[in-house]
Computed example of a mutant assay.
Amino acid sequence: MNYKVKFQATLFLLILGMFSISCISNVEEQLEDPDINVEVSFKSSVKPIIDARCTSCHSPSGGTFPNLTNYDEVKAKAERVKIRVDNREMPQGSTLSDAQIKTIVDWVNEGALDN
């Protein structure tokens, strides 16, 4: 391999490495910056919390109103759910982590979208 080809290959790898590092640090900055809004997904973030921590009581088989087994029911009671969760009144006999509470509160504050 001649000098020119080695130089080009080295330069390419150097540029590729710098690009990769800059992408990684940019993602880390976004994750650490609380001012960057990341939309909370009902399907992948909120529903799993509700299914795991709420529907054992708040379902037709659980017998406690409101029913929280589907998006329409949760959306209809979103503000109430937010307040009760944020005040740590729900779930009764258990607690949600700060991250779970923030997820639900943020989702409601973002308009309780079906996303």
Score class of each variant (00 low, 15 high):
96 L>I: 13
61 S>D: 11
29 E>I: 03
77 K>M: 09
89 E>M: 11
1 M>S: 15
74 V>G: 10
41 S>A: 06
2 N>V: 13
48 P>C: 11
78 A>Q: 09
74 V>R: 04
71 Y>E: 00
85 V>Y: 07
11 L>N: 09
12 F>Y: 07
14 L>E: 02
97 S>H: 05
9 A>V: 14
68 L>T: 04
91 P>V: 12
91 P>K: 11
15 I>R: 05
68 L>H: 04
71 Y>T: 01
4 K>T: 15
32 E>P: 10
83 I>G: 13
79 E>H: 07
91 P>G: 09
54 C>M: 11
4 K>W: 14
35 D>A: 02
9 A>S: 12
48 P>A: 09
11 L>S: 10
4 K>M: 13
7 F>Q: 13
23 C>D: 00
46 V>H: 03
55 T>W: 02
87 N>C: 14
111 G>I: 02
78 A>G: 08
84 R>F: 12
20 S>R: 02
103 T>Q: 11
67 N>T: 06
22 S>W: 03
102 K>M: 13
25 S>V: 12
109 N>T: 08
90 M>W: 15
111 G>M: 03
91 P>A: 10
1 M>K: 14
26 N>Q: 09
103 T>Y: 09
22 S>P: 09
90 M>L: 15
111 G>S: 02
67 N>M: 03
65 F>L: 03
36 I>T: 05
56 S>E: 08
67 N>G: 06
57 C>Q: 08
46 V>Y: 01
82 K>S: 13
79 E>L: 06
15 I>E: 02
36 I>R: 10
8 Q>R: 15
46 V>L: 03
3 Y>K: 15
60 P>K: 04
47 K>I: 08
21 I>G: 04
112 A>C: 04
35 D>T: 07
10 T>C: 12
104 I>K: 07
26 N>C: 02
58 H>Q: 11
26 N>I: 06
67 N>P: 11
107 W>L: 03
104 I>S: 08
55 T>L: 07
44 S>M: 02
14 L>G: 11
69 T>N: 05
74 V>D: 00
8 Q>W: 14
9 A>W: 13
113 L>M: 00
71 Y>R: 01
5 V>C: 14
18 M>A: 06
51 D>C: 08
25 S>T: 14
114 D>F: 01
104 I>T: 12
84 R>M: 14
101 I>K: 08
14 L>F: 05
80 R>W: 12
68 L>F: 02
110 E>I: 02
97 S>L: 10
72 D>F: 00
76 A>Y: 03
52 A>Y: 05
92 Q>H: 10
34 P>H: 04
31 L>Q: 04
101 I>N: 10
113 L>I: 00
88 R>S: 15
47 K>P: 09
106 D>P: 04
16 L>S: 08
104 I>C: 11
113 L>T: 00
109 N>M: 13
109 N>H: 09
5 V>F: 13
54 C>W: 06
49 I>W: 06
94 S>H: 04
81 V>L: 15
48 P>V: 12
18 M>G: 11
89 E>P: 14
105 V>Y: 04
29 E>N: 07
8 Q>P: 13
94 S>T: 07
63 G>K: 01
50 I>V: 14
13 L>D: 05
99 A>M: 11
25 S>A: 12
76 A>R: 01
108 V>Y: 05
75 K>G: 00
109 N>F: 04
49 I>E: 08
75 K>D: 00
19 F>C: 08
